[in-house]
Design a protein around this nucleic acid. Structure first.
Length: 415
RNA sequence: GGAGGGGUGGCCGAGUGGCUAAAGGCAGCAGACUGUAAAUCUGCCGGCGCAAGCCUACGUAGGUUCGAAUCCUACCCCCUCCA
């Protein structure tokens, strides 16, 4: 990495955050000379952010840590328009209430990573200005700086056109809205930098051009790479869906597990991107070979969970995992629990039903297949009889551990 | 408005009267091997059922037939070309 003078860009470069930057030298100069303000936008399409947003969040966090001012922009306004980037179909339009609910959830995600206290990091909603725009004045002020010729050349638009998928005029305006956001933030807060995923490059550049044409101001854009795992899968997506940052969407234990199960080849890269451990420490962990690399994965899991859920939750998750996977008795308190009424247990509950009650199988048939395949266990003993009945006496000291495979466990209690 | 093509399981995609709960692939789940990794191999993969079997399912609604994802009719939706 060609030696950056500013801490901010040096850290981002060393850790592998930088994909593209509009004018690295000038941005470096500005960040070295004084405090700059930069932002990332998050649309309110779900009630929690997820691991796919984490790179952007970490960039804001580093911006703050290196002495600058981050702005988290929630897209209360742009969500009403819908970003067509990377999508073949337009998204269902969200209602005002849904957007408000999602915005609240996104704040909870962000608060963990950024310090909004004392006027440090700022939280702004673009509905503040977008909702109030007047059509004709807006077209005259902003619209005249955009040419359709240029807009049609943008990747997000071209893709839709080439695949002959419809692109509504509403969505077509998304990039104009995002460009205007940047201009507005630069006016209100002297914000000079916009960051985001590489898919946002076009939209970011749009804003930079608008500011240059409209006011002759130089703004900067910086994108992070689109992350894939070493085996090529999109980062942060699992079969169950996105890896959410909010604990009501994904318990900290599951979050910890997600990081713990990182592929060997990704460990070093992820440590640099998703933890704040010193680079020397990471280099050491990265050198671990064979089974020893599990130590590095546990540290990755702990650090990543600490950022999203706090130290306490991270410790608990690590603890629960240790008991679960590395033998030893003791309590298994961190496992999800279900309760079954004593009256039901009195007459006996078929194991297959217990598996569905515990959420470990979608149907009794699935539970039966699980048993036939040898993947079902009861207090760590393989279940061979699919007709087994469970009674209160089987709960022993109060709880029964049901397992589907090595990793999914549920405690059953009587109530 | 006219002509043509198409809608099959989570996705892709075969199937053009019974042998079809529907080939194959992907994804998923489990087992083996391991290191809670990757790769590989094996099994499972609509619901209910111990089973026989029953139910639901090939855009929607009817119909023909002993029997339909497959044939007919109407409707809905998508795409292509022309105007």
């Amino acid at each position: 990495m060609r030696g950056f003078r500013s801490d901010f860009l040096r850290v981002l470069a060393e850790r592998g955050f930088i994909h593209q930057c509009t004018d690295p030298e000038a941005l470096d100069g500005a960040a070295a000379e004084g405090r700059i303000t930069g932002y990332v936008g998050f649309d309110c399409t779900a009630d929690s952010l997820h691991v796919g947003n984490l790179l952007s969040i970490m960039m804001l966090r580093w911006l703050q840590r290196t002495g600058h001012r981050p702005i988290a922009l929630v897209g209360g306004g742009t969500t009403k328009v819908g970003d067509p980037s990377g999508k073949d179909e337009s998204r269902r339009l969200l209602s005002e209430e849904e957007i408000a609910r999602n915005r609240a959830g996104i704040l909870r995600s962000l608060e963990k990573f950024l310090d909004f206290g004392g006027g440090e990091a700022l939280l702004v909603d673009n509905a503040e200005w977008l909702d109030r725009l007047l059509y004709i004045p807006f077209l005259r002020e902003v619209g005249r700086h955009f040419t359709i010729n240029r807009m049609l050349a943008f990747e997000s638009v071209r893709q839709r056109l080439e695949r002959e998928q419809p692109l509504t005029f509403l969505e077509f305006n998304y990039m104009v809205m995002q460009a205007y956001d940047f201009l507005e933030l630069s006016r209100r807060f002297d914000c000079r930098l916009q960051m985001g995923g590489s898919d946002q490059w076009g939209n970011i550049v749009c804003g930079i051009e608008l500011a240059r044409r409209a006011e002759g101001r130089q703004l900067f854009g910086l994108t992070c790479p689109l992350l894939t795992t070493a085996s090529g899968a999109k980062m942060g997506k699992t079969a169950q869906g996105a890896v959410w940052l909010n604990e009501d969407r994904l318990p900290p234990f599951e979050y910890w597990q997600f990081w713990r199960n990182t592929e060997d080849a990704d460990v070093g890269r992820f440590l640099r991107l998703f933890t704040e451990l010193p680079l020397e420490e990471i280099a050491r962990l990265e050198r671990l070979q064979g089974a020893e690399i599990n130590e590095a994965k546990k540290i990755l899991a702990f650090e990543a969970t600490r950022l999203a859920h706090g130290e306490e939750a991270a410790r608990k998750a690590a603890d629960a995992a240790r008991r679960l996977f590395e033998g030893g008795e003791g309590s298994v308190a961190a496992l999800p629990e279900v309760t079954v009424p004593r009256t039901r247990l009195a007459e006996g509950v078929p194991v297959v039903e217990l598996f569905t009650l515990a959420g470990l199988a979608k149907s009794r048939g699935e539970a039966r297949r699980l048993i036939r395949g040898g993947g079902a266990r009861l207090d760590d003993r393989r279940i061979t009889d699919e007709h087994l009945m469970i009674r209160e006496a089987d709960l022993g000291d109060g709880a029964l551990k049901l397992s589907a495979g090595r990793k999914r466990h549920v405690l059953v209690r009587a109530a």
